[in-house]
Design a protein around this nucleic acid. Structure first.
Lengths: 247, 247
DNA sequence: TTTTCATTGCGTAATAATGACGCAATAATA
DNA sequence: TATTATTGCGTCATTATTACGCAATGAAAA
């Protein structure tokens, strides 16, 4: 990392959501020399767009390209950043002492959330300042550095609001999925329970699903049908959003 | 402006919306030594939160406090900023030559939109780099510096989407207003026309309006009732948003 | 092989919301 | 006093939502 080659004062933090075992999970990095975790993030190279850099961070951690990625908020409190999570890294020579003044700046950070298919991230990659990287279920997020708790919470609300406007499942579910799986995703994001039969009718009325004709066998009950998203209709729905309110 | 006292690389641009004569208008500054206009904006003092600084910019230009202000997007293209609008100002000694290197940085800018009651901004105040400041109707925005056209367009879309979730009129209309005035505001923001009778029913069903009992006299037709917003219900609606989609 | 079980797919009835209108009432003006 | 433009209120058909009932069906237990 060539620090003179970066946009000063601004960082990126990514809340990478996955869905597994009926839970929303986020990808977190365990800081070296500390019990705290952090969001995947980084700084912006002077020759890259901010959006580009966010996509790059995501690619670096997950190996994935063309991820659904959305900027949701700039966190700009005057006192939000400090060097307490960096100092142990410098002491233990994980980072060079010369990097201290870079981290000692005031940073605003721009939050992005990403939606990825959990199973497609087989081997997430930690960075040099981290021991490991792992998916953490939202209910039991560990202790985080800086304001990263707040960033995750903000992302969660942003995702929840988005869900009422636009379809979201395409990015979080595998290619084929059952109606109960889709419903569980919605219930998790919305933090509520929905009537099975009404959910089914409503989501089908959006016209973005295709029945594959196949069924998910194996469970001790009636086998649910497998659906995929109709790519064309889905893209249209993402573009135009759902009708709501006055429009 | 003490440039060493500012967060580098990040600026603020404010799209200040007002509503007058059935048109949405934005407050723009005419650059000195140029035919171009710009959004009110500025840089972030190291001892201020970004949100605080945005509110400060608004106060400086409009004299108003407690303005509805919402961050909507970070514009972070690598090549979005340049010094072409600054050079004439330095040549004519409007800005000191020493400020060139500050403006020659790459800047990302965080966009805020503000909603203000048009009539309450009696004397908007230009800055030292501007000849004048004026309300411009959205349909005829003049030539703007940098990516300010794009910023306004983005703000407009953000406002439009917001309108489907939360009430907006409180900040754009005078204390008392008629149903047709409110409808005209909605139609302008949504860029559509709405049935008068259905709009009335829907907006009343939200329970955020109070009939003052008074009427707006003077026109050659039946005098429309004057309404105000029910502060308690309105605040509740802003907080919780309107029901829509799945939730 | 048959029964049991959990769960799906489909359906229905009551209620609420929406879209497209009709029409009498009314403030200013001719 | 009649005319004009526009408001406030109401109706009716259609669509959406809510709250359920029930037969069908894979797998597992009897």
């Amino acid at each position: 990392m060539l620090l003179h080659n970066l946009l000063p004062g601004l960082s990126i933090d990514c809340v990478i959501f996955g869905f597994h075992q009926n839970e929303l999970r986020v990808l977190l990095l365990k800081m070296k020399q500390s019990e705290r975790w952090s969001l995947p993030g980084g700084f912006i190279r002077l020759d890259r767009d901010v959006d580009e850099e966010a996509a790059h961070i995501l690619h670096t951690r997950t190996g994935l390209d063309n991820i659904f990625l959305k900027q949701f908020h700039l966190f700009g409190k005057q006192n939000r950043s400090n060097t307490s999570h960096i100092e142990p890294l410098i002491e233990q020579n994980v980072l060079p002492a010369s990097s201290f003044q870079w981290f000692d700046q005031r940073f605003a950070t721009i939050g992005y959330y990403a939606l990825v298919e959990y199973a497609s991230v087989t081997q997430p990659i930690a960075d040099t300042t981290s021991d490991c990287i792992a998916w953490c279920p939202l209910p039991d997020i560990p202790s985080l550095i800086l304001d990263h708790h707040q960033i995750i919470e903000h992302a969660r609300v942003a995702l929840k609001e988005e869900l009422n406007f636009r379809p979201v499942g395409r990015n979080l579910l595998p290619d084929e999925f059952t109606m109960p799986e889709l419903q569980s995703l919605y219930e998790t994001i919305l933090e509520t329970s929905l009537d099975r039969r009404n959910f089914r009718r409503k989501i089908l009325s959006l016209g973005i699903l295709k029945d594959t004709g196949k069924k998910r066998l194996g469970a001790a009950n009636k086998a649910p049908s497998l659906y995929t998203f109709d790519e064309v209709k889905y893209a249209e729905a993402v573009e135009k959003g759902f009708k709501s309110g006055f429009l």
